[in-house]
């Protein structure tokens, strides 16, 4: 019976695990992704030289820094004709802080600095842009279809790191966002959701308490099974030690069920036996006041404070 219960419990855990794993297989572990691309820059963001050029924005979607040094940006607008830009090492600015952006100018003038590539983006043709790590493993890629972007419009993820792309045309809802979040975060959506749907807090209380109970019920089931298994093993060991094979006999003799008093008596006997090894010597007993440093953290006994009394 116990085996069946253990089997059911483990199967349930495995099923939950497999179900949850299934959802995560599609997720990429890449920290760096291409986030926004602007091809024809006539009056948009300008570089340090005051020039308007197309640009590619890279986003570090993780919560740790990521370094672009040694990575490659590749562009192709004609099949078989790929231009590759090696992002130089030794520039501390290539290290992108968590959830931050880096902007590369597609101006074909790498002598202007680390963030100026050796290619320009094609205004008339489809642009394939790929980001590769130093081992030339593809981190992210995007295809900007031909003809969908007008001047000063960008092709961008709807919000940072989202999987869907859209054309940003600088309208009030869809604005071009070089080196900043694709969607300005001016609120806390989770909190707003609670404020809107659960102003009293009952929803939070029910859902959170359910999770607390589920967590501790899982622990309860688990340790109930482990406990039963442990008791069973103890009985089996006791039967082996007494050379008893009949379970009924073992039950009658209460094998493996030593009460606390018996354990305490055995422990005391062992203690005395060990103490007896020591020679009896002449001793002088000095009674002095014991002074111990007060330390509730390191001793359970000391933590048991007295009930506060009015002094």
């Amino acid at each position: 019976m116990t085996r069946n219960k253990i089997g059911i419990f483990l199967s349930l855990l495995l099923a939950i695990g497999l179900c949850s794993c299934h959802g995560s297989t599609d997720r990429s572990n890449t920290k760096l992704i291409i986030n926004e691309v602007l091809i024809e820059n006539q009056g948009n963001y300008q570089d340090d030289y005051g020039l308007h050029s197309g640009w590619i924005e890279i986003f570090n979607k993780s919560y740790s820094s990521a370094d672009l040094a040694g990575c490659y940006l590749k562009v192709s607008s004609t099949p078989g004709d790929t231009v590759s830009y090696f992002i130089p090492k030794g520039d501390i600015l290539t290290s992108i802080k968590p959830r931050q952006h880096a902007l590369f100018w597609a101006d074909g003038t790498p002598r202007h600095g680390t963030f100026h590539t050796n290619f320009v983006l094609s205004k008339d043709k489809e642009n394939w842009i790929g980001l590769f790590d130093s081992g030339r493993k593809l981190l992210d890629q995007v295809v900007v279809p031909a003809g969908i972007l007008q001047a000063n419009q960008s092709y961008a993820r709807i919000s940072d790191a989202s999987s869907e792309w859209e054309v940003k045309d600088d309208s009030a809802e869809k604005y071009v966002t070089p080196s900043t979040n694709n969607k300005t975060i001016d609120s806390n959506p989770k909190m707003d959701k609670f404020e809107q749907h659960d102003p009293v807090g009952i929803g939070m209380a029910i859902s959170a308490m359910s999770v607390v109970f589920v967590g501790l019920i899982l622990l309860y089931i688990c340790f109930r099974l482990i406990g039963k298994l442990s008791v069973k093993l103890r009985k089996q060991n006791a039967m082996k030690a007494h050379n008893i094979t009949d379970k009924q006999e073992a039950k009658e003799k209460k094998l493996g069920e030593a009460p606390g008093e018996v354990i305490a008596a055995i422990t005391m006997a062992l203690h005395e036996a060990r103490g007896a090894d020591h020679d009896v010597e002449e001793t002088i007993l000095t009674i002095s006041r014991v002074k111990r440093s007060y330390s509730p953290w390191s001793s359970k006994i000391y933590t048991l404070r007295e009930t506060p009394n009015r002094k």
Binding site: V200, G201, I202, M204, A205, A208, M209, V212, F213, G215, L216, I217, L219, Y220, C222, F223, R224, I226, G227
Partner: peptide
């Protein structure tokens, strides 16, 4: 707790204090 795991549920129930105060 290990010897009597059902006591865990009492620990869970007492967390109502958190969500009562939240409300």
């Amino acid at each position: 707790l290990i010897s009597n795991p059902k006591l865990m549920l009492i620990g869970a129930a007492a967390q109502f204090g958190i969500f009562g105060a939240y409300m």
